[in-house]
């Protein structure tokens, strides 16, 4: 096991040197889209955890109220507010996607009985950010009984645009490349959601107080990525020890 860890560490370090050289050459400090395709699953018996809080250091104004212009009977039952910057207790930043961007080996996805699902509910996407395993079908539900459409926009994945009239409760979509994709409904232009197409299970979304936790991480040194829809990305290094709990905090400033 020790030799395996050493091999992982050497591999991880050489990858990082490679990444560093690439980033020097390209002038980019961190790749935004996750790598994929070469992730190997196995049992993680001596894993550690990565825990922390993501905070917002700027001044958060009250979320702006959305102008609901059409379908008010369904969409304006209660006031709607923008979800693009939600700051909770202690400046905690909600809906940040946190993931290990350079993990090559680790746990498998937990088996699930039904596909990951995003609901169009009261003319909002619920949840606002959804994690979906790369290459797997996920469902979009229409709980509103009126016409919606599901329009994805990414950079690696080609745009998909499916009509979802009131009588079509569920449509299925598959995205083949790991990246964070915007989801919109053109019929209701205020609707906005995000799909984190995940290359592996080490992805998590911060809760309303900005907290997150990643479990069963094989010991090693990793790059942790933080993405927020308005505030951009942050990168941190983390070393995970067997059975240990690594603390990684991240801060986002206004931009």
């Amino acid at each position: 096991m020790a030799s395996q860890t050493a091999v992982q560490c050497v591999a991880a370090t050489s990858r990082r040197i490679g990444l560093f050289v690439v980033s020097l050459l390209s002038g980019i400090t961190a790749p935004i889209s996750a790598q994929q395709g070469d992730y190997v699953t196995g049992d993680v018996s001596d894993g550690g955890a990565i825990v922390g809080q993501v905070t917002f250091t700027g001044t958060a104004s009250t979320p702006r109220r959305l102008a609901i212009t059409i379908d008010t009977v369904v969409c304006a039952r209660e006031p709607q507010f923008a979800e693009d910057l939600l700051v909770g207790g202690g400046g905690g930043l909600q809906n940040v996607v946190v993931w290990i961007s350079d993990i090559r080996e680790g746990k498998a996805w937990e088996p699930r009985h039904s596909p990951a699902a995003l609901a169009q509910n009261g003319c909002r996407f619920v949840p606002h950010v959804l994690i979906v395993p790369v290459g797997e079908q996920f469902e979009v539900w229409n709980n509103d009984g009126i016409l919606h459409n599901v329009h994805t926009r990414g950079t690696e994945n080609r745009p998909v645009n499916k009509a979802q009239p009131g009588f079509l409760r569920s449509v299925r979509i598959r995205l083949a490349h790991a990246e964070i994709v915007h989801v919109e409904c053109d019929a209701h232009n205020w609707m906005s959601g995000w799909i984190a197409v995940a290359a592996h299970p080490y992805y998590v979304i911060t809760d309303q107080d900005g907290n997150y936790r990643l479990d069963d991480v094989p010991p090693g040194t990793y790059t942790l990525q933080f993405w927020h829809e308005r505030l951009g990305t942050e990168t941190q290094q983390v070393t995970v020890t067997a059975g240990g709990e690594a603390q990684v905090q991240a801060r986002f400033a206004s931009r």
Partner: peptide, 14 residues
């Protein structure tokens, strides 16, 4: 199939 790159969606599933 819809009109690519525009709001006009595909109705094949519906």
């Amino acid at each position: 199939v819809g009109i690519g790159g525009t709001p006009m969606p595909s109705w094949a599933d519906a």
